[in-house]
Amino acid sequence: MTEIISARGLVKTFGANRAVDGVSFTVGEGEIFGFLGPNGAGKTTTTRMLTGVIPPDAGTATVLGHDIRREPVLAKQDFGVVPETSNAYTDLSAWQNMMLMGELYGLPRSLAEERSTDLLKTVGLHGKKDQKVQAYSKGMKQRLILAMALVHDPRVLFLDEPTGGLDVQSTQMILSLLRDKNREGITIFLTTHNMEEANRLCHRVAIIRRGKIVAIDAPERLKMAIDRVHRIEVSFDREVPDEALGKVSGVAGVKRTGDKYVLDVLGRDAAIRSLVAFAGENNLQIVTLNTLAPTLDDAFLRLTQEGGP
């Protein structure tokens, strides 16, 4: 896979605070790469270094083969940015903002008009294109920012919390557009707090804690990797003593929640077979049997908590 974004040893210090401390990763062509971390972990600072907004104190970043410090204009020409805070010009209309972007990316006027019309229709703003942005809602502003970032048909898109605080309609519209653009071949670098969003959208995610990358993997592998002990939720047609369940082969722990038992097991397959045998031996009927996989939230919490792996 062609390397589209590459960060090598990025460091950024603000006063005594080392916000980003030797961050390295690569993003391949066509990937949706999620960048997760708690507040203040260094996500936005990393994104701003990658997009050439602020210079790193050490390390290098390349986008589409162009070093962002040595060839910033060439690098920026082929990527679009949706920042954390909506930053369209509120004194201008949506159309004027789109035209400004077209000019800043060197598009011929007719092409900028054609793309702006299409994009504004896609994000549902074409009917209000001549209205000043200051009258827009937060969701409308964010959709406009996304349209502005796409007007030059970029090969890479950087998004920093693009759906933060938005209504369901705007969120779904943005996520759907991102999926479509990714299918068309755009590489996406997505910073988000929303684990569900990252889980459903990203091919790989990186988790950053206190300026350092603590894990990079596919969401499913990351979820599995954090816990060697798996959980099974089971309920029977009548009550069973905890001690009896604890003695079932492969069960490491038992916790009762309501009419169900949550079992910590070492291997799911062996434990399920043992439970079925246990039910048969004790003339019990299994009412429910669920395997509880760790969520990306679990992985995130485990990896970002103090003293985590």
């Binding site: 701003r48 907004v53 940015v81 369209a88 060197g106």
Partner: peptide, 11 residues
Amino acid sequence: AKTLERLASCP
């Protein structure tokens, strides 16, 4: 207004 950041991320 953070619009300078918009310009800074443009080519």
